[in-house]
């Protein structure tokens, strides 16, 4: 187990290095200069040269990358090119918690409600709870998150006035609609996965054996059925986490939430090298970390899977 963990952590570090290097190379291979923005188009040659020197853009790409890694290890991601004087680490520290809060709460609700719905649907196969869950699942898979967000804004924000239409700091109510819009698709995905998984597990030999041995119905439901049916649901947790964080970009835009997504989109458009690389490393880290967590949880859920292998 320890050997496996060390191996995975080593791969995590390698992945982040490769991702940051690839991003660095891709950004620098695009023709043009990020300093040639509208505000600085008519700058004298000397001033432009000074700017290039300040941001290290006059150095070879490999040197720039080495410098970035060296500073990043100290927690310094440099200064934004587009917004001079704005420290990237401070911007990330300010915006990442907002995106993180939105994303993590959405994943939590998406996972728990989705698993519960799928479980209930499978246990009531062919009855009204099953049809209700199937309907929710179909709607969740069918309706894009931005459409869901618009519908929520229209009905619960504008018409019923239950929740504020846009984000307001310190007001928990302003988080209800974004979280609902973001977690709806996740609920649907997990409900579908869980339903088919539970239906498969219910008819397995070990459930029959447990019944024959006189295990209580609750014991069978939670210890045998739920635990084993959770395995397929856990496998898609990794992609779901990254999917939710990607989806949060659009939700942040619709509800005007000052999260990382808003900044990333504008920074890519204006080619703010330091900001793009920093956020890409952050998202890469999140992705690899979620994969690691999934692997570990997978090992605990299924004793047949030996993590060391």
């Amino acid at each position: 187990m320890t050997r496996y963990m060390l191996k995975r952590v080593a791969f995590m570090v390698l992945s982040i290095i490769v991702v940051s290097a690839a991003t660095f190379w891709m950004m620098h291979s695009v023709p043009g200069n990020p300093l040639a923005t509208r505000a600085r188009k008519n700058l004298p040659e000397q001033v432009l040269a000074n700017y290039n020197k300040k941001y290290g853009l006059d150095k070879p790409v490999s040197t720039q990358y080495a410098l970035f890694v060296k500073n990043a290890l100290k927690g310094d991601f440099g200064e934004s090119i587009i917004y001079p004087g704005q420290q990237i680490s401070k911007t990330i520290a300010k915006t990442a918690p907002v995106s993180g809060k939105l994303g993590l709460i959405s994943i939590f609700f998406g996972f728990t409600i989705g698993v519960a719905f799928g479980f209930i649907a499978a246990l009531n196969r062919g009855k009204w709870p099953d049809f209700l869950v199937i309907t929710i699942a179909i709607l969740g898979v069918t309706i894009p998150s931005f459409v869901m967000a618009s519908l929520l804004q229209y009905f619960f924000g504008a018409k019923l006035k239950w929740f504020p239409i846009t984000y307001r700091k310190g007001n928990w109510k302003s988080f209800v609609m974004p979280i609902t819009a973001l977690s709806f698709g996740t609920i649907a995905t997990y409900a579908r996965y869980m339903r088919s998984s539970v239906l498969e597990v219910i008819n397995s030999d070990y459930v029959l054996t447990a019944r024959a041995k006189g295990v209580t119905e609750m014991g069978i439901l939670f210890k045998h059925i739920l635990k084993n049916a959770m395995i397929p649901a856990v496998t898609i947790l990794g992609p779901q986490i990254t999917g939710v964080f990607a989806g949060s970009f659009i939700i942040e835009k619709i509800f005007n939430i000052p999260g990382l997504g808003q900044f990333l989109v504008s920074s890519i458009g204006s080619r703010d090298y330091p900001f793009i690389i920093s956020t890409t490393v952050l998202f890469g880290f999140l992705f690899v970390l979620s994969q690691l967590i999934v692997d570990i949880v997978y090992g605990f859920l299924d004793p047949r899977i030996k993590l060391a292998e």
Binding site: V18, T23, V30, I268, F283, V288
Partner: peptide
Amino acid sequence: MRIVEIISCLPYLLIVILVCLWLN
């Protein structure tokens, strides 16, 4: 498969915008 994992780490938003910038 390690290559696949690394590619999966790249935000596709970034790739889309970079491709559009490349092709101008």
